[in-house]
Design a protein around this nucleic acid. Structure first.
Lengths: 221, 221
DNA sequence: TAGATTGTTAATCGATTAACAATC
DNA sequence: TAGATTGTTAATCGATTAACAATC
């Protein structure tokens, strides 16, 4: 039997974490258009979602609103950004300067979303020492030391599946705690490491199944 | 009140659709190593998942096994591939030949996962007419006609958010039914269109929140 | 046969949705 | 005040997990 542990705060629902950025993006556009306050039913109408669900989601960020009025827009945005850690961007190392890695290195606006890629790593000597999208490419074996010295806690893996486990272990060795893994493989890491898998094949599966189902169901239309 | 409709088959759980590729990948490696049959408890042990959940997931593909023995490996793989539509790869058009688009064009093995990218589209005249990763880049306005003539039903959007809605509407106009959207924006499309959003900012949110939470919780360790 | 695993039904759990009092 | 919206509690829904009979 597991005793309740005060330290071990109840994790936030994954679904909520994935909806908050949606609200955030919409609220930012509202802010730009000069709006100063907003209500859940309003957001719900504009995003075609359920107002109660939105209220529950916003509640997790700790923001409070006023009946009849709604929320102060700037306040709401600030709460979401703080809750997601976006107001304090974490530096990240990216490993695997291939085409996908290069694309991510060039992604603008990760800074506004809690992450700043400060360097890339690759095992290819031809790439080491060069700049890709303005970011230095370093040799992989430098990673653990550098991560520790620079206090980098976030890593992105964009190497092929075959090399991902080794890269992940180097990251953990360097004290990295959160890994965004784009390699199509399940990493085996210590439990305290936070891993988010961005497995495109898994993602594609739901789309292809639904399309296949829709193609086979139709007989006439 | 909604009457039960035999045509409208109950949708498969999204979570199941996302786990099937995991099993598939693992089973393929088992197949390569010469294994011919496999049981749920075995898979569960190797992937650190629950055996009952795996059995339920496999059940949705329609495969049947034998008590005590398990499933015939080749049979199981074939059922997953058929269920996901991977045994009959759909042709796809990709719009937005930027760095992310180019990375996807170069992705090997989409063919084994139900999708074959046959051409790319871009509004940049400098790119139109060239080859990227061996795929022709065409002018965007050619898309609807070509999609209809070639019977292409799947589209991938890798343009910036500002252009995504227009691209999506062109796709729908061309008869495309399933869209894999990498642009960070919610598309407004007819209900019959299947959309899968691959919003990296939303995805990053869960990772950054968990990291931020873990950084703030620790006082000593 | 004994034992392990499938197939299936029931129980649990968590997230979504509904209901409603408090309040501005 | 009347009406709309928040905050919160209860009900519903669906997915996960457990239980167990059938079977090889």
């Amino acid at each position: 039997m597991v005793l309740p542990n005060q330290r071990h705060e109840r994790g936030v629902a994954e679904a909520t974490l994935r909806r908050l950025p949606l609200y955030h993006r919409h609220l930012k556009t509202l802010l730009e258009s000069g709006v100063t306050s907003v209500s859940c039913p309003q957001i719900a109408g504009e995003l075609a979602l359920d107002p109660t669900q939105i209220r529950k989601d916003l509640e997790t960020t700790g923001v409070t609103g006023r009946p009849k009025v709604g929320y102060v827009l700037a306040d709401l945005i600030a709460h979401i950004e703080h809750f997601l850690g976006w107001d304090n961007a974490k530096e990240a190392f990216l490993v695997g300067a291939g085409s996908l890695g290069a694309a991510l290195l060039g992604y603008m606006r990760f800074e506004e979303h809690g992450m700043s890629i400060v360097a890339a790593f690759d095992h290819d000597d031809a790439k080491v020492g060069t700049l890709i999208r303005g970011k230095h490419v370093l040799a992989i074996d430098k990673l653990p030391d550098l991560a520790r010295r620079m206090h980098v806690y976030m890593g992105i893996i964009t190497v092929p599946a075959s090399g991902a486990q080794d890269v992940a272990e180097l990251m953990v060795k360097g004290g990295i705690r959160a890994i965004w893994n784009f390699a199509p493989i399940r990493l085996r890491l210590p439990n305290h490491t936070i891993v988010h898998n961005e497995d495109l094949y898994c993602s594609l599966a739901s789309l292809s199944q639904k399309l296949a189902a829709s193609m086979s169901t139709e007989t006439g239309v």
